[in-house]
Design a binder for these strands. Structure first.
Lengths: 202, 202
DNA sequence: CCTACCGATCGGTAGG
DNA sequence: CCTACCGATCGGTAGG
C-alpha cells in the first residue's frame, strides 16, 4: 500500500552522491546514474523530477548534517577551548561520515540554480558566524589570546576541518576523533615548543 | 613574420581559467569561451587543438607556479620556523595571484585524462613531501614540538594555505603577506595564551 | 577567423 | 520500469 518507493529513491541519491563526487555534476549523465542502478535513463524519472533535484537534495542533506552537529553546541556551558575542540570533532566527523556528499557540497554548489545557490551561501555564513562567535567568546573569557583576529582565526579553523574532505580516508587508521584531537592540540598549543626563543630572523 | 599568434592564445587561456573556475570545466562550452573573446566556436581551433588541452595547460601553469615558489626554498639556510613562515607566504601568494587557475587546479584536475591526472597526483605528493621534510627538519632542530605527527602537521599547514582559494579576495585589505603572517603566528604560537592553565574538562 | 556542418550525447517525456 | 523518441547542445572539422 506504500505508493512511494522510498528506498529506491535513497539508492538513487547515494549513487548520485558517489558519481557527482567522483566525476562532478555535469560530467555525470543520467544514463551513467541509471546504469549504476541497473535501469534505463528514462526510468529514473519515475522517482525524481530532475537532475538538479538530486544535487539540491545532496547539498541540503550535507548542510543539515553540519547544522545539527554544530548548533546543538551553541548553548554548551564548556569553556571555549573545550568547545572548539568538540566543534572541530563534530565538523570533521560529518565530513568523514559523508565523504561523497561533503565533496559534492564543497565542489558542486556553484552549479545550483539561484535560489538553492543563495541558500547555500547563507548557510555558509551561518557556519562562519558560529565559529566567530565561539572564538570571540573564548577571547573574552581569556581562553584564547587577545591579539587574535577573529575572522582569520575562524578561517584557520575552518580550513583545517573542511580541507579534510581532500585527504581523509574513512577506512584508515585515523578516526575522526584522532584527527580532531591532533588538529585542536596543534591549534591551541602551537607548533613551537613551550617557552621557545623568539623566531630567529633570516 | 610571426606565424604563432601567441597573445591570442594567452587570451584564450585567461578566459578559460575564468570560465572554468566560475562554472566548472564541463559546464563551460567552447561556444561560451569563444563568445567571451568575440569569436565563433569553431574559430578557437585555429589556436588550440582541444578543450582538454586548455585544462591541461591551466593546471600545469598552476603546478609550475607552486613548484617555483616552494622548491627554491629547499636549500634555504633559515631555521625551520622562519622557513615555514616563508613557505606559507609564497604558497598563499601563488593562490592569491592566480585565483582562477588555482581554483581550476583544485576543482577540475579530476577531469584530466589518465596521464595528466597522474602527473597532478605526483605533483601533489611532491608538495606534501616538501612540507613534511620542512617539519621533520624543524622537529629535529628543536624549532617544533617533538610530539608532533609529521603528516598531520603537514595537513594542517596545507589546509590553511590551500583553503584560501575559497575565501581570499584579491582586491581586499588583506595582502597575501598579512594572511601568511597571521596564519603562521597562530600555528606557531597557538591560540591559547602563553602559560595558560590546562584545558578544563567538561 | 567564419559558415556550415558532423555524429554523439545530453536531460527529459510519452505511452505503455 | 522499458522503449522509443524529442529538441538542444556538445566538441570538433572541412573548406574557404
Amino acid at each position: 500500500m506504500t505508493d512511494t518507493p522510498k528506498p529506491r529513491r535513497e539508492q538513487i541519491l547515494d549513487s548520485a552522491s558517489r558519481l557527482f563526487s567522483e566525476r562532478g555534476y555535469h560530467a555525470t549523465s543520467m544514463r551513467d546514474l541509471a546504469g549504476e542502478l541497473g535501469m534505463q535513463g528514462g526510468s529514473l524519472y519515475a522517482h525524481i523530477s530532475s537532475k538538479e533535484e538530486l544535487l539540491i537534495e545532496i547539498v541540503n542533506q550535507a548542510s543539515r548534517q553540519f547544522d545539527e552537529a554544530l548548533f546543538t553546541l551553541r548553548g554548551d556551558p564548556r569553556p571555549a577551548d573545550a568547545k572548539l575542540r568538540e566543534a572541530m570533532y563534530r565538523h570533521i566527523r560529518v565530513v568523514a561520515d559523508n565523504m561523497d556528499s561533503a565533496t559534492v557540497f564543497f565542489h558542486e554548489w556553484k552549479h545550483l540554480s539561484p535560489e538553492a545557490y543563495d541558500r547555500v551561501t547563507g548557510w555558509r555564513d551561518t557556519i562562519d558566524a558560529f565559529y566567530r562567535e565561539l572564538i570571540t567568546q573564548g577571547v573574552q573569557e581569556g581562553y584564547f589570546r587577545p591579539e587574535l583576529d577573529i575572522k582569520m582565526t575562524a578561517y584557520l579553523v575552518l580550513s583545517a576541518v573542511n580541507w579534510a574532505y581532500t585527504w581523509y580516508r574513512p577506512g584508515g587508521t585515523l578516526a575522526p576523533r584522532d584527527v580532531a584531537e591532533q588538529f585542536a592540540d596543534m591549534l591551541l598549543l602551537g607548533l613551537r615548543p613551550a617557552h621557545a626563543a623568539q623566531e630567529a630572523q633570516p
